[in-house]
Simulated assay, not measured.
Amino acid sequence: MKLLNRFSGVFDTLAKKIEQAEVLDAAADPAAEGAGRLVSGPTVRSLLGGTPLGHPLHPLLVTVPIGAWATAAALDALGNKPGARSAVGVGVLVAPLAAAAGVHDWATTQGGERRVGWVHGLLNTVTLGLYAASWVARRRGNDRLGVLLTLPGLALLGTAGWLGGHLSYARGVGVDVTAFEPEIPEWVDVAASTDVQHGQLTGVSAEDTPVLLTRDADGTPRALADRCTHRGAPLHEGQVEDGCVRCPWHDSLFDLRSGTVVMGPASRPQPVLEVSEREGRLLVRRPAGS
Rank of each mutant, 00 (worst) to 15 (best):
T108R: 00
E183L: 12
G9P: 10
G141Y: 08
E279C: 09
G199L: 05
L60Y: 08
G54K: 05
L145S: 04
V147L: 09
L122T: 15
L157V: 08
L148Q: 08
T51P: 00
L151C: 11
G91I: 12
T125A: 14
A87Y: 04
R114K: 07
V44A: 07
H104D: 02
D251P: 03
L151A: 13
S46Q: 00
L151P: 05
R222H: 04
T71H: 11
A225H: 10
T63K: 04
L128K: 05
V177C: 05
L78I: 00
G112K: 07
E183V: 11
L157H: 01
G91L: 10
Y169D: 07
R281E: 07
A179Q: 13
A233S: 13
G161N: 00
H198T: 02
R227N: 03
Y131Q: 02
V64Q: 10
A100M: 12
R215Q: 01
D25S: 03
V211D: 08
T109V: 10
V261Q: 00
G219F: 00
E113V: 09
R171G: 12
V245L: 13
L224M: 02
G158A: 14
L3K: 14
L78V: 00
Q270D: 00
L224T: 01
L156K: 04
G161Y: 00
L48M: 02
T178F: 14
V284M: 05
L148P: 04
N124A: 14
P152M: 03
H198V: 02
K17T: 14
H230A: 04
R140W: 06
A95P: 13
T229V: 06
R231G: 11
V284I: 03
H166D: 14
D226I: 05
A35E: 15
W135T: 03
P59L: 15
P287F: 11
V44M: 05
R285S: 01
S290P: 00
E207D: 07
G9W: 15
H120R: 11
T13E: 14
G36Y: 07
R85H: 11
D76K: 04
L14V: 15
L4W: 11
A217R: 05
R37F: 09
L213W: 02
G165T: 14
G232M: 11
V10T: 15
G111S: 10
H230N: 06
E237K: 07
S267I: 06
L61H: 08
E113G: 12
G102W: 04
D12T: 13
A99Y: 12
T159F: 06
A95W: 14
T150K: 03
W135Q: 06
A73D: 09
S168R: 15
A21M: 02
R171P: 12
T13C: 12
P56V: 13
G41W: 11
L283K: 04
G49Y: 00
L256N: 02
S267N: 04
S8L: 15
P30V: 08
R114I: 06
V92W: 01
L130N: 03
S290M: 06
A32Q: 04
L145G: 03
A77R: 09
A101R: 01
H166C: 13
L60K: 08
G164M: 01
L235Q: 03
L4R: 11
V103Y: 01
L151S: 10
T260Q: 06
A99R: 05
P65L: 07
P234W: 00
D76T: 01
H58Q: 04
R246V: 10
H166R: 15
G243I: 06
L213F: 05
G112P: 08
A133P: 07
L157W: 01
F7D: 09
